[in-house]
Nucleic acid binder design. Structure first.
Length: 933
RNA sequence: GCUCGGGUGGUGGAAUUGGUAGACACGUUGGACUUAAAAUCCAAUGAGCAGUAAUGUUCGUGCGGGUUCAAGUCCCGCCCCGAGUACCA
């Protein structure tokens, strides 16, 4: 009988479905274990081979834990709000809800084929109103909260208002606003709200966006390539807009400290640490020469203050207009204009070109009272520190280059250091000179001294700065959660929690309105009636009873920042999850997903959970104890060149000196010789219908590049074909066999037949051409030994998420059993269970043919018998330098004397006591001896 | 640019974390079975040199240095590739 994977897989998938095998209860006397995957965004391209990599790994672990006797929660859902569905809606006019639903059912079909042990009764979708109701609810909590820096936690805004009523801003730290209780009571509602906005965790502020004037819309960074829009290749500028933001920066210190409490990969923690970017330094105030104002600067090197010879401001700095003198006005405006066309990333990463412009104004050095010129340069970023830099050319490479370029004075404050050619950036082994009271001090003492002197003359103080910025929360998009806020006389008002969800309205057009409003501006019914407490027609807005509703929607990260809590109790409509459910499941025990989320989702969700914890809504501040990163499966992308000036597409082999933009095209349009099918390409998107090409010998070649597999890169490979020709079990094993899960790797199917052969070999241990050949007799000792070795190794390797080596071990075992013709049920039974997490369909079938009636999933995972694992000693000589040389590796129980005896004996061999019996092998005279004869 | 990874045969990758580099697969070559092919099974397979052969020997983990009796593994300096870089998810 042959291995019929199709029949087997169908049979067991149906069995699991009919028996609710993977349904998990919140009530159990077993220990709980929560295994979570990062839920997918249901893109139109379907599930690609990269998605299952993590899901297979987590499924193996979940099934393993279940075999070990845990009550395992292993849910799945969809992060179903997002940009691509909206872009598709713009192109086709179809409602994103419709395409999202279609994509989800496609995903579900694909997921079902792979035999995952998900409990689908707990499925969630972020775009479902029963889900986003709670996202909106949490947003309003953020709106109605402030961060108390004294207590280091979030508190209800009401408590702050009470505090203002009684004490004004007294005792409130980390704020620049000051008023008394009496003053507070006299403020009108506008003024009060303005002040509260400085404290609310969700607040309105001006922030920069990518604005494309030609398309009349805000673009995501992903839609901008080399400063031009991906669609059409138009100019994009940075423009200020009123935006909702989340004050995540107030949690900087806790987010940093919290890293110590979680078992996440060190590299990922490092990334978050650096992203939060804590640095110690000083806030230094420089008085402006020509006005009463001053410029505050954050510097990590207050010790070098006497080396400061100018100040540099970001072009966006609010003081720029005021500081610019008449003579410099045109130059400054031109400069600001040109830098608004550069992306922030380009500005920071371009270290080679030096640009800047003098404002014409000066500040006064707090100690020397010398005048320092104020310059503007776009390497200074408005969102880091104060958007102004104290430039010390002798101690900073960038300032040095800037000063040389513009002929600004350079003062050397480092004793015995030559700075003729470059700045001296080290803090170590140097004394300060030329610096008045800091002379002869080292870095640390000078740092402290400078800070205390600044404090004395009220020109600054020691401070800590974080790079982490508040998170912009508004999107000028349709397909996202509506923000449950209406505006009464321009004051944002929360919609009462009772009336959530605020449902996403229908619109005729998913593009921004003619006057530049977000797509929700197209909604007819988008007024909030405060008497009826419901949405009414916009035409009824009268600013008395009916008010306009916020037009922006929430970003993708809103719904994904708390979803792990929802799985615990997904159908609850009284709360986001019941207290009992939250208490039982508590937190995620194993979270599996890509490291590309390191500074996005994985930081936002930690913040969100901390906030919920502060609000006493969850029981733990840490939502995922352990995180394992799955490396990305990379795709082989195809890119074509577009001439920026003419818009003509250029074949990759006929590029001259054109300035080009690279565009990803669908890999399905490319043949084996990397040639593009022009017809398919032109039909692909409306804007390419009229495309013109520069070709060579009538063919158009593309460039190939390895990139992450993603719909936006059009390089997606589906797993369906592999399920069709080899089956899900083969796919599962193969994806694991490809390499360690943490490692990124390009997709290829070269070795898949090896894994398929393995499953066939397993099958042949049970069946010959016609019959079941399993026998009850005792197995031979060698088969038993290797079985026990494998059991030991697999237990160890699963716990360490080393699934690729598990597969290898299984292969070795099966090869051995085949060689030994071992068909004893005493070996095949444990083999089936070992196989179960990896190839669950086949394992179930084998378990069944061995005469068992119940699913294999609740069988106890085998433990090895230590008596069968006594290591054999291996003997072999080593030689080098033309002479025979022996290494004697000693076990701990050999004495020196015994060693000498062995050495003196000329009949030497080397004993390799194989790792287990001796832990560490160290050199002479302790445990290793080299002997030359 | 900055932060974090990675680089081992023709290919994917092993290597008990400093102790026999190349497990397990793929591919390739040869053989068995077959009229033939597919499938399956067996054998060889890092490169070079010597030898009919068993075998011996040199070189080999991106590049250049270093530490060590011993380095794929640790340290210093480079090169290349990937991810993220604050509105893709």
């Amino acid at each position: 009988m042959a291995y019929n994977f199709k029949k087997i897989e169908e049979k067991w998938q149906n069995y699991w479905k009919q028996n609710n095998t993977f349904h998990v209860s919140n009530i159990s006397n077993k220990k709980k274990f929560y295994v979570l995957d990062m839920f997918p965004y249901p893109s139109g391209a379907g599930l690609h081979v990269g998605h299952p990599l993590g899901y297979i790994a987590s499924d193996i672990y979940s099934r393993y834990k279940r075999h070990k006797g845990f009550n395992v929660l292993h849910p799945q859902g969809y992060d179903s709000f997002g940009l691509p569905a909206e872009q598709y809606a713009i192109q086709t006019g179809q409602h994103p809800q419709k395409t999202t639903d279609e994509n989800i059912s496609r995903y579900r079909e694909q997921l079902d084929r792979m035999g995952f042990s998900f409990d689908w009764s707990r499925e969630i979708r972020t775009s479902d109103k029963t889900y986003y109701k709670w996202t909106q609810w949490m947003f309003l909590l953020l709106f109605d909260s402030w961060y108390d820096s004294n207590l280091q936690k979030a508190r209800p805004i009401k408590e702050l208002i009470n505090h203002f009523k009684n004490k004004g801003t007294a005792e409130i730290i980390n704020t620049s606003i000051n008023f008394s209780a009496e003053e507070w009571l006299k403020f009108d509602s506008h003024q009060k709200e303005e002040i509260l906005q400085e404290f609310r965790i969700a607040y309105l502020s001006e922030a920069f966006v990518n604005w494309c004037p030609k398309l009349g819309t805000v673009l995501a960074n992903d839609e901008v390539i080399d400063g031009l829009s991906q669609r059409g290749g138009y100019e994009v500028v940075r423009k200020k807009m009123k935006q909702w933001s989340i004050r995540i920066s107030s949690y900087s210190e806790r987010l940093l400290k919290g890293l110590d409490k979680i078992d996440w990969p060190e590299s990922l923690k490092d990334m978050q640490k650096n992203w939060i970017g804590k640095s110690k330094g000083a806030m230094i105030k420089f008085k402006i020469n020509s006005s009463s104002k001053s410029i505050s600067v954050f510097s990590t090197r207050p010790d070098t203050i006497f080396g400061a010879t100018f100040l540099t401001l970001a072009p966006e700095n609010e003081l720029v207009t005021e500081l610019t003198t008449k003579e410099n006005k045109k130059e400054v405006e031109d400069y600001i204009n040109s830098s608004s066309k550069k992306s922030e990333r380009d500005r920071i990463s371009d270290v080679k070109s030096i640009s800047g412009v003098f404002t014409g104004s000066y500040v006064i050095h707090p100690f020397t009272k010398k005048l320092l010129p104020i310059w503007i340069s776009d390497y200074v970023i408005s969102t880091y520190g104060t958007g102004a830099v104290m430039a010390v050319p002798c101690g900073d490479a960038r300032d040095y280059a800037f000063a040389k370029h513009f002929n600004i004075e350079i003062v050397n404050i480092f004793k015995d250091v030559n700075i003729d050619d470059e700045a001296f950036e080290s803090k170590e082994k140097v004394q300060i000179t030329n610096s008045d009271f800091l002379n002869d001090l080292d870095y640390h003492s000078a740092f402290d001294m400078a800070c205390s002197k600044l404090n004395e003359i009220s020109s600054g103080n020691k401070t800590v700065n974080y790079k982490l910025r508040d998170a912009v929360f508004s999107r000028q998009r349709y397909w996202g959660e509506p923000i449950p806020i209406y505006f009464k006389n321009d004051i944002p008002q929360p919609i009462n929690l009772k009336y959530l969800p605020l449902e996403l309205p229908n619109v005729k057009n998913y593009l921004p309105t003619e006057n530049g409003d977000p797509p929700l501006g197209n909604a007819q019914n988008w007024g909030w009636d405060i008497e009826k407490n419901k949405v009414v027609s916009k035409s009824k807005i009268d600013e008395k009873k009916v008010f306009r509703i916020e037009l922006n929607t929430m970003p993708g990260w809103a719904g994904s920042s708390w979803y792990f809590n929802r799985y615990m109790d997904p159908n609850n409509d009284q709360s986001f999850a019941s207290k009992d459910a939250l208490k039982y499941w508590k937190e995620v025990d194993l979270y599996l997903g890509g490291s590309e989320h390191a500074t996005g989702h994985l930081l936002y969700s930690r913040f969100w959970q901390m906030f919920l914890y502060d609000m006493k809504l969850v029981n733990t501040e840490v939502y995922a104890k352990k995180l394992v990163n799955q490396g990305m499966i990379l795709g082989n992308s195809a890119l074509i060149y577009r001439d920026i000036d003419s818009g003509i597409f250029i074949s990759s082999d006929s590029l001259d000196d054109e300035k080009i933009q690279k565009i990803n095209v669908d890999i399905n349009f490319i043949n084996q010789n990397n040639e593009l099918d022009l017809k398919q390409f032109m039909d692909w998107q409306p804007e390419y219908l009229e495309a013109k090409f520069k070709m060579k010998n009538d063919v158009f070649k593309v460039e190939r590049e390895i990139q992450k597999m993603s719909k936006s890169k059009y390089n997606v490979v589906n797993p369906d074909d592999i399920c069709d020709s080899y089956g899900a079990d083969t796919l599962r094993l193969y994806e694991m066999f490809l390499g360690p899960i943490e490692q990124a790797k390009p997709w290829n199917t070269n070795g898949i037949s090896g894994v398929f052969n393995f499953l066939n070999k397993v099958w042949k241990l049970f069946y010959d051409e016609n019959n079941l050949i399993v026998v009850d007799s005792e197995p031979d000792i060698e088969s038993l030994k290797i079985l026990n070795q494998t059991i030991k190794k697999i237990n160890h390797d699963i716990e360490n998420f080393s699934f690729n080596t598990c597969v290898s071990s299984l292969m070795i075992l099966v090869n051995k059993l085949t060689e030994k013709k071992c068909s004893s049920s005493k070996v095949l039974k444990p083999l089936s269970i070992l196989l179960s997490p990896f190839a669950p369909h086949l394992a179930e079938e084998l378990w069944f043919v061995l005469g068992n009636e119940n699913s294999i999933i609740d069988e106890v995972f085998p433990e090895h018998d230590p008596n069968l694992l006594i290591e054999e000693e291996k003997n072999y000589p080593v030689s080098f330098n033309g002479k025979l040389k022996f290494q004697i590796l000693l076990s701990n129980d050999l004495t020196k004397q015994e060693v000498e005896e062995i050495v003196s004996n000329h009949d030497l061999t080397i004993k390799n006591l194989n790792g287990k019996s001796i832990k560490k092998i160290i050199f002479v005279p302790n445990k290793i001896i080299n002997v030359v004869c």
